[in-house]
Design a protein around this nucleic acid. Structure first.
Lengths: 116, 116
DNA sequence: CATAGAGATTGACATCTGTCGATATAGTCG
DNA sequence: CGACTATATCGACAGATGTCAATCTCTATG
C-alpha cells in the first residue's frame, strides 16, 4: 500500500527497526488458526470440558445435548468440528457414538501457543 | 427437547453414565472463548508472531502492515482485538503506536487449555 | 497556523458461522 | 420385516466477522 522502502533512502527517524524475518508463514498461520477456531466457541469448550471430566473418558451425544441446552443436530455439528480439528476421537459402538479426547491433543495445542 | 428422564424410569441400557458435573459453566466458557476467538484468525496469529519475534519486543503498525499484505485499517482492527483479548499491550509514543506482548499472557492462555 | 503523516474509527459489503427443523441413515428389538 | 432410537446430514436463515475505502484525530514540523 505505502512505498516506504523506495521513497525514503535515508529516513533518519524510522519508527522502529524493520525486523521482517522468518515469522509465521501464511500457511502455518492458516493451519494453526483452524485449531483455535475450533476452540473459539463457548459450547465447544464446554463439550471438551465435559468429555474430559467424564470418568469413563468418553461421552455419547445424548449426554452432551442436555447440559448444553442445544439441539441434537447442533451438538453433532460442534462435535464434528472438534473431531476435524484433531481434538476429539469418535467411535461408534452400536447405536451410540462415543467421543473421547485425543491423547495429547490439548497439550499439543497449548504448545502451538508458547512456540508462536 | 427430548424427555429422556421422564419417560424411561428404568432404562436398563443407558449409553453411558450421566456424569453431569461441575464442568465449565456457560459464563466461564464464554470468557475463555473470547481469547481463543482472538487467536482464531491467521493474520492475528502472524501479528503475535511478528511482535514476539521482534528484537526490541515492540512493533509499530507501519511494520506490521507490509508483511501481512493487509490494509492499515484492517491491521489496526486486528490489533485492537488482540489488545482487548489481553494479549497485546499498546503504547503510543509521539506519532507512532507501539505494540508489545503482555508478559505471561501467552502462557496463561496455554494454561486455559490444559486446565479445561 | 498550516501542512503532512501515523494510526484509529466509521460505514458498507461479502462471506462465514451457529442454530434449528426436517430428513436421511443405520443399528436394535419385537 | 417393521417400528423405534441414536446420530448424521441438509437447507435455510439470522447474526457475526474480515476486509476495504473514506474520514477523523492527533502529533510533529516548517
Amino acid at each position: 500500500m505505502n512505498s516506504l522502502q523506495t521513497v525514503e533512502p535515508a529516513l533518519d527517524q524510522a519508527c522502529c527497526a524493520p525486523s521482517g524475518q522468518p515469522v509465521l508463514s501464511a500457511e502455518e498461520a492458516q493451519q494453526k488458526a483452524l485449531v483455535f477456531k475450533a476452540l473459539s466457541d463457548p459450547n465447544r469448550l464446554r463439550l471438551l470440558s465435559i468429555v474430559k471430566a467424564d470418568a469413563s473418558g468418553e461421552s455419547c451425544v445424548c449426554d452432551l445435548t442436555e447440559p448444553l441446552d442445544l439441539g441434537q443436530p447442533t451438538v453433532s455439528h460442534h462435535l464434528k468440528i472438534l473431531v476435524d480439528a484433531g481434538l476429539l476421537h469418535r467411535e461408534k459402538r452400536g447405536t451410540w457414538a462415543y467421543y473421547s479426547l485425543v491423547p495429547g491433543a490439548i497439550e499439543k495445542t497449548a504448545g502451538l501457543l508458547t512456540s508462536l
